[in-house]
Design a protein around this nucleic acid. Structure first.
Lengths: 209, 209
DNA sequence: CAGGTTTTCTACTTATAGTCGATAACCTAG
DNA sequence: CTAGGTTATCGACTATAAGTAGAAAACCTG
């Protein structure tokens, strides 16, 4: 989440194929290397990987048409960075809104959309919000974050009750100072756990009718 | 589902490594081959792949410790065969209960359990029952199938109502002749669709308290 | 202190799922 | 042909989760 929108880190290619198109960070596996190690190694060239709050395997494609010259098998991972961290980026990379992608290289456009779907699903049946939200936040902040990620309005009242019932959130006991235009100061919450936990319910926050 | 239990097709290895241990069917990718094509090709040596009612990618592991001699990257798929099909099997393969696995080769034991978890989850928020059940079935049959796959008791009344509400089932209009010990003949149902569809609900059939 | 703003709470409604007992529709034995 | 056993189905009730709306709380500024 950057700028109130779901954005993805892309890198503008210099060389063919797909010169000038935008690609996900990545690269080749070294012999004997774990997939996740390799992802982290390649990503480290772009951002500080200690900032990753969550990473999970997304999909593996071996479709021969995905690369024009070479036959490749590629495994994509979904990685998340909390909204309050703002990593230094090299000049050829930047954040791009997922719902307004530039022209992408290879099959990266489809992979990004698959990642968004995975994220949306896990917002509804897991505690994956911890990977997007800052360590401490108000319910209104969290509502805006969920709304942007899910792509539809979310009720703050309902969100708070659902996440508290599932025991995913706990109050920090602090309150945020109210803004310049006044208003009641918001109580702050945090996620109880910062590792992925699946709930036994699903229907968090369908779009309002 | 075979014999009222969730079973997996395994193949007893003849050669080292893991000689005599049981392994999932599979093999090496050919150059230029799609992952799914490769799976179907290797599987065809064991069973008629036209009997597969569903197939989906499960997980890719590149952990160097998974094979003692060689560095491998392997992608596992989950494939399902309806309970009323009984493929001819070569002598070195057979069905083995997932909750009572023999000694497995490589990391195949963990992969099988991951497959079971995927299946259980999709029974709860998708129509994946179509891939396990016969084309036409009574609610009691379906209850037994769900109970065996989920690992806990399931109420037939509730199952029928939930699946009908989600519009996943439809009555065929036929009834099965009652068994030798009598009883009311059961109405027959079928799945409306035989391709995977995600529902917007989740909590089908939690274990009874 | 009045009026505006944001947050939070409470009550109500709706949707979905879980449970239990009654009833229906068949069988076989006598 | 009927009594009693068996399996399937239905209906009513309960429990839980989620969606909505409006009132109240807690701050701000002028």
């Amino acid at each position: 989440m950057r700028d109130g929108r779901l954005q993805v880190l892309l890198w503008q290619r210099a060389l063919a194929p797909f010169a000038a198109a935008f690609a996900l960070p990545g690269g080749y596996l070294l012999s004997g290397e774990t997939l996740e190690d390799s992802i982290r190694r390649h990503l480290a060239e772009k951002v500080d990987v200690r900032e990753l709050s969550h990473i999970e395997q997304l999909v593996t494609t071996g479709d021969p048409v995905r690369h024009p010259d070479e036959w490749q098998v590629a495994t994509a991972y979904l990685g998340l960075i909390p909204s309050d961290l703002d990593p230094e980026l090299p000049g050829d990379t930047g954040w791009y809104p997922v719902d307004q992608l530039p022209e992408t290289a290879f099959d990266h456009g489809a992979i990004i959309l698959a990642g968004r779907e995975r994220l949306r699903a896990k917002l509804s049946y897991a505690n994956i919000g911890f990977a997007l939200a800052p360590r401490s936040f108000s319910i209104s902040q969290l509502r805006d974050l969920y709304a942007a990620a899910l792509g539809h309005e979310v009720s703050a009242t309902n969100l708070q009750r659902v996440l508290l019932r599932r025991e995913l959130l706990e109050p920090t006991g602090e309150r945020r100072a109210s803004g310049p235009s006044g208003g009641r100061p918001a109580a702050l919450f945090r996620f109880r756990s910062h590792s992925l936990e699946i709930t036994d319910q699903f229907a968090v926050l369908r779009p309002p009718v």
